[in-house]
Each structure stands twice: as C-alpha cells, then as structure tokens.
C-alpha cells in the first residue's frame, strides 16, 4: 500500500518538476513548483517525517511561494523572449543537473541511515526528536544559522532601501496621537439670514 502511494506521489512530483522548467507561463511554473512541494511533502509523510513535511508546506508553500507568485504576477514578462533562451541554456542546464546527480549518487551510496530512522520512529514522534536534536546537540549551529539569516535580511533591506529626500512619508505616531480638538473646532454662531 505504502509502495503504491509512494509511486503515486513520486510520479506527480516528477511530472510537476518537469513542468516547472518546460511550461510557458511563469505563473504556471510557480504553481507547478507548489505542486512539486506538496508531493514531496507527501513522500516525507510516508517516511514518518511529519515535522519536515508540514514545515515544507508551511514555510515554502505558505510563505515563500506566496511572495514568489506575488512578484511573478506583477512582472510584465515577455513570453516570446523567455522561450528563446530555453534551447540556448539547455546544455548548461543538463551539465548542472548531471553534476548534481553525480554528487547525490556519490553521497547516498555511502550513507545508509534508513534502519536508524525506522527503529526510532515508533515511540517518540518525529517533532519531539527533531526538537531534542536541534536544541541540545546542534544548539550552536542552529542559533548561528538563525543569526546569519537575520544579518542577511537586514543587509538586504539596507541595500535596497534608498530613501530619497523627495519621498513623502506618513508619520503614524502623529496620526495615532491626533485628538479631535486638533482637527475640528466646534463653533457657536447665530443663524445667518438669507439676504
């Protein structure tokens, strides 16, 4: 049963991944990438790696791809020019993917941890195990990775934020502190006659 499910999701994954690079419209490509994320999350669930599977959907599908789509939809992409590049960059793409395949084969051949995963899975949930590992054994690498990400984020913001003198900004603190007396004045006056 699990085998059938695995092949089902794996086939969808391969199909979606292929479509990401072959489809004409960039928005469709992004949507196929989301489908690929979903199918790989399903494959991870079959491995009892529920935390990784859900984190993949939460982080990549729920946040990263939303921003991706956000940007792609706003772009005015010239579809014809996109097609021209496909054959030109195809050899480079094949070379890179061949290299990645070679690396994966070299690594995975000497790395056999499936037995370990299968035995520990039964009693303790995957989320607890990951939390234990991340916050005890790998505490420093984990915190350092977080700090690096924070620095990268701040750097990206400072690089792109070029505040010009001519820009007009709203000052929320002033807007929030406005009282009625600052904006409207109630006056008493006699009714004016028509003539």
């Amino acid at each position: 049963m699990i085998k059938i499910l695995f092949y089902f999701f794996a086939l969808i994954l391969i199909f979606a991944a292929t479509r990401v690079v072959t489809v004409r419209n960039p928005v469709h490509a992004a949507l196929f990438l989301i489908l690929a994320f979903f199918s790989s999350a399903a494959v991870w669930l079959l491995l009892h790696a529920e935390f990784l599977a859900i984190a993949l959907i939460l982080v990549y599908v729920g946040a990263v791809m939303v921003l991706f789509l956000f940007v792609i939809m706003m772009l005015d992409v010239n579809l014809v020019r996109l097609r021209e590049g496909f054959t030109r960059y195809l050899p480079v793409g094949i070379l890179v993917s061949a290299l990645i395949l070679l690396q994966m084969v070299l690594v995975l051949r000497y790395w056999n941890t499936t037995e370990v995963i299968a035995t520990t899975m039964v009693e303790i949930p995957n989320t607890t195990l990951l939390g234990m590992a991340l916050y005890t054994t790998y505490l420093y690498p984990f915190e350092i990775a977080a700090a690096i990400l924070l620095v990268a984020m701040i750097a990206a913001i400072t690089l792109t934020m070029r505040a010009r003198r001519s820009n007009k900004y709203q000052k929320p603190e002033q807007q929030v502190n406005v009282r009625r007396a600052d904006r409207v004045r109630l006056v008493k006056m006699l009714p004016e006659s028509r003539d």
């Binding site: 984190a55 959907i57 939460l58 599908v61 729920g62 939303v66 949930p125 989320t127």
Partner: peptide, 15 residues
C-alpha cells in the same frame, strides 16, 4: 501529534 502545525500549514495554503 503535529496537529497545531498542520492547522498552520492548512490556513497558510488558503491564500
């Protein structure tokens, strides 16, 4: 076990 995470994932996909 990861019910809360599942909920967060599902609500984030709704967008």
């Amino acid at each position: 076990n990861a019910g809360l995470l599942y909920i967060l994932a599902m609500t984030s996909v709704g967008v």
